[in-house]
């Protein structure tokens, strides 16, 4: 009886392994097209968010250091030229900052409802994430912050008086780095020199 069990188990295991192999290779083929899809979508959202930024900034009429490079970005829609411009911008800013001081900085902007809560150049350290930059800024200025989760699973529920779900069901905080919204948690996104971080309160009323 034991031999029969062994035989059937071997058969079962082999069939499952073949099934896993087939499914896996099927997904390996489709995963390439999937990733290209994602890349395409992220470019689209980048363009869209850039357009959106432009209109929102026209409304708010805030003319400062941040909005100018973003407007430049949004004016030319092709991603390649955008990237080259970004890299140029990074080079120039790093040149300037290395001349003045060696510390690396990112620009942090927090946009509330029809007003800017805060904007500042924040110094970064090695391994800083978008969330740790925000945390440093809020502790420095004593702005209250509500979060859930920890580490790479962090989720920002509220900054200052604005908490999620208070202005419509879909309201809450989202972040953008250089005009694009990354698909990963703020605790997982590593910032680099010259990044433009925008925390924006999305609401629909």
């Amino acid at each position: 009886m034991n031999k029969q069990v062994k035989k059937y188990t071997t058969l079962y295991v082999t069939i499952i392994f073949i099934g896993i192999g087939m499914l896996g290779f099927f997904h390996s083929d489709s995963s390439q097209s999937y990733s290209s899809d994602v890349a395409h979508k992220s470019i689209l959202t980048m363009e869209k968010s850039a357009e959106k930024k432009e209109t929102s900034q026209q409304k708010e009429e805030t003319s400062d250091k941040v909005s100018q490079p973003q407007k430049q970005q949004s004016s030319n829609q092709q991603p390649q030229s955008q990237q080259s411009q970004q890299s140029q911008k990074e080079e120039t800013t790093s040149d300037v900052s290395s001349l003045i001081e060696k510390k690396e900085e990112v620009t942090l902007t927090i946009l509330g409802i029809n007003k800017t809560i805060g904007q500042e150049n924040v110094e970064i350290e090695d391994g800083d994430s978008v969330f740790s930059v925000l945390k440093r800024y809020t502790t420095k200025h004593q702005i209250s912050m509500k979060t859930s989760g920890y580490g790479s699973m962090i989720y920002v529920r509220g900054i200052g008086d604005l908490v999620e779900h208070e202005h419509g069901a879909g309201s809450g905080w989202v972040y953008k780095v250089n005009g694009a919204s990354p698909n990963i948690s703020a605790g997982n996104y590593e910032v680099s020199q010259g990044d433009v971080i925008v925390w924006e309160y999305i609401y629909s009323e």
Binding site: L23, G24, F25, H27, S28, S31
Partner: peptide
Amino acid sequence: SLEQFVVGGVGLF
């Protein structure tokens, strides 16, 4: 880990 192979292919695995 083969679970990830089924879900996302060789790269994810």
